[in-house]
Simulated scan of single mutants.
Amino acid sequence: MAIDRNLDLVKIAPMAKPPVCRIMDYGKYKYEQAKKEKEARKNQKVVNVKEIRLSPNIEEHDMQVKANQAIKFLKAGDKVKVTLRFRGRQLANIGLGQRVMDAFKEILSEAGNVEKAAKMEGRQLIMFIAPKP
């Protein structure tokens, strides 16, 4: 029947009892599948993660400059990873770093939501901020 209609006989479910086959134009089917995949890729939004590095003894103006950069990233639709690295004796004063992170979070409250709260990982405090929808 497939040869009479100039079409292809395609096995859809070869493991079924009995196997399921379909008469179709396989070339046209593959073309439409590729077209659908291309359209899905075009509509897909790629979210990048940008990183902002802070230190526990950062000055107010420096923090404002970093916050403006982070706001720019969030408005572009990217997530922001805020890293605060402790060096040497600074590890004894983790509370100071936590206050810096809280102040940074407060500055960014209009542009983004905290996705993952500040957490110590080794010598670093790490926080993730996602853009507001």
Rank of each mutant, 00 (worst) to 15 (best):
K72Y: 15
D78P: 14
F128P: 00
N43T: 13
G95H: 03
A70L: 01
L7A: 01
K66G: 06
M24W: 06
V65Y: 02
G27D: 12
A40L: 15
R85F: 13
G122L: 00
P18H: 03
F128C: 02
P133I: 09
V65G: 03
M15R: 09
P133D: 04
V114H: 03
I3E: 05
E115Q: 00
L7T: 03
M1Y: 06
E59M: 07
I126C: 03
A40F: 00
H61S: 14
K75Y: 03
K119I: 10
I126H: 01
K17D: 14
E60K: 15
G122P: 14
Q124C: 06
A103C: 01
E37A: 08
G95F: 02
V49I: 15
M1H: 00
A16E: 15
G97H: 03
N68Q: 13
V114D: 01
G77M: 02
M1D: 13
K35W: 08
G95N: 03
M101E: 10
Q124W: 00
E59Y: 14
K35P: 00
K119N: 06
A92E: 15
Q64E: 10
I129Q: 02
D102I: 10
E60C: 08
K17P: 11
S109H: 12
F73P: 01
E32Y: 09
I52E: 09
G112Y: 00
N68V: 01
V10D: 04
A103D: 07
A76S: 15
G122C: 04
A118N: 11
R53F: 14
K35C: 05
A34W: 07
N57R: 10
K42E: 04
E110P: 14
A76Q: 04
I58L: 08
I23K: 08
M1R: 09
K75R: 08
L91D: 08
L7Q: 11
V82Q: 10
G122N: 10
F104T: 07
Q44T: 13
K81A: 11
M101D: 02
D62R: 08
E121F: 05
N68R: 00
M24A: 14
I107N: 07
V47I: 15
K36F: 03
I107F: 06
E121G: 13
M24N: 11
D102C: 07
P18Q: 13
M127H: 02
A130G: 07
R87A: 12
A40R: 07
R41H: 03
K30Q: 12
Q90A: 09
D4E: 09
E121W: 02
V80L: 05
M63I: 07
C21Q: 14
T83M: 14
M63H: 09
V10M: 07
R22F: 05
L84S: 10
V82T: 05
V49H: 06
L96P: 02
I129S: 00
V114Y: 07
F73T: 04
R99M: 07
C21Y: 12
